[in-house]
């Protein structure tokens, strides 16, 4: 959020933020970008019900090219369903064709630094999730895992993408340390509104690229 604001305002692009809480009215088509984060299990259930009511509108806006970044719990709820430890099914809104299963207490959470290769280049972040996500055939992933567990600690995929919507388990100040990803979201939002000719001027990113490179270095050392 803070990175998107900075990267817009530094270029003279106006930025306004609307926080949507449970029960608030919200027309996704009116926005240029949507972000959804994760939460604890207790919060997740409340948000699932609320999101289900908005599912149709969000799906339509995303088909229309609305950029979205949904992280962790938000990513899981953008799939078809989440099956929790007790086997209970929490339906998702089906933006992505995937399902997430919690393996129960027998398996460890996937926790640690991650490096993946994406269409926006190398992306670094931190994952911390109990659920294992499985993409349906034909569902595009967000990135290929170089270091880390990714969706299910098996098929080396991480996250999912559909049109301009990206779902991922990565956080850890994701956008500040991956400025190319932040810019890709901003450009997608601008092009949807103003047409394909829109571009962004580069920013001075020494601090950002330094933190990115350091994170890669630390991850390589720890994970190899």
């Amino acid at each position: 959020m803070i990175a998107l604001r900075y990267r817009c305002e530094s270029r003279g692009i106006g930025f306004s933020l609307t926080e949507v809480n449970i029960g608030d009215s919200f027309d996704p088509a009116a926005f240029d970008l949507v972000l959804i984060g994760g939460g604890q299990d207790r919060e997740q259930r409340r948000i699932a019900d609320d999101l289900a009511r908005r599912g149709e509108g969000i799906r339509m806006a995303i088909e229309d090219g609305l950029p979205a970044l949904v992280v962790c719990g938000g990513f899981q709820l953008f799939g078809r369903r989440y099956i929790d430890q007790a086997g209970e099914i929490i339906p998702g809104i089906g933006v992505f064709d995937l399902e997430t299963r919690h393996p129960g207490p027998v398996a460890d959470r996937c926790i640690g630094d991650v490096v993946i290769e994406t269409a926006e280049g190398e992306v670094v972040g931190f994952e911390n999730h109990g659920g294992r996500t499985y993409l349906a055939p034909g569902q595009a992933h967000f990135g290929k895992v170089r270091y880390g567990a990714g969706n299910n600690n098996g098929d080396r995929t991480e996250g999912a993408r559909h049109k301009n919507a990206i779902g991922t388990y990565l956080h850890g100040s994701l956008l500040p340390k991956n400025p190319a990803l932040a810019d890709a979201l901003i450009v997608a939002g601008l092009r949807r509104r103003y047409g394909p000719g829109v571009g962004l001027e580069p920013l001075e990113d020494t601090a950002e690229t330094g933190a990115h490179a350091n994170a890669v270095r630390i991850t390589e050392k720890r994970r190899s």
Partner: peptide
Amino acid sequence: GDRAEDLAVRMKYAGWER
């Protein structure tokens, strides 16, 4: 610290000097 560069980014956004 090991993550000194992360702090440099964080403070840049917080409005601290370099």
